[in-house]
């Protein structure tokens, strides 16, 4: 597992780590028992502040996805991958068949994405939030039965700054 930090994305480094970890868990790159890279390994590759890595890991820990074990590292304790959501699953096969029909009907990729997004919202409710450019504003996590994401700890002491 290697993190890529995009400094121009407008998404904070700690959110990028949180998202990339979850993505890796969904894709099965990280499974229960996998060790996350140490802060030192991450910063040696990305040249970011190690406190940022700790903050991201702590957030994942608060969501119950990983566990930090003293002297051993930070380990994945829950699975986000679902066999039903894999490309080769029965649902994936149905979607593939549907896409074949869409393609045959002359829909291009943007048409399909727009339709899919609209119907997803109809089913699951609410617009899918795009990555927001503000610092440390965590996007709600979808499809995860984890404890609710806490508000970003970055902002907790704002009132002290006045």
């Amino acid at each position: 597992m290697q993190f890529r930090i995009d400094r121009r994305s407008g998404v904070t480094a700690h959110m990028q780590i949180v998202r990339q970890t979850k993505q890796a868990m969904r894709m099965g790159v990280l499974s229960v028992g996998s060790r996350l890279p140490t802060a030192r390994e991450v910063v040696a590759a990305t040249a970011i502040n190690p406190n940022t890595v700790h903050k991201a890991y702590r957030e994942l820990e608060q969501e119950g996805l990983v566990e930090s074990r003293r002297g051993a590292g930070t380990f994945v304790v829950r699975s986000l991958s679902r066999p039903e959501a894999a490309a080769g699953s029965a649902l994936g096969e149905e979607l593939r068949e549907w896409l074949r029909g869409a393609h045959a009907a002359g829909l291009d990729q943007d048409d399909v994405s727009a339709l899919f997004t609209a119907l997803t919202e109809e089913r699951y409710g609410g617009p899918t939030p795009a990555p927001r450019p503000e610092r440390g504003a965590p996007a709600p996590v979808r499809g995860v039965a984890a404890p609710r994401e806490t508000n970003d700890t970055q902002r907790t002491s704002t009132e002290d700054a006045g």
Binding site: A39, V43, A47, I48, N49
Partner: peptide, 13 residues
């Protein structure tokens, strides 16, 4: 970038 990465990893340690 290299020096910053080296600095950050020593700080992490």
């Amino acid at each position: 970038h290299e020096i910053t990465a080296a600095l950050m990893s020593e700080v992490a340690e």
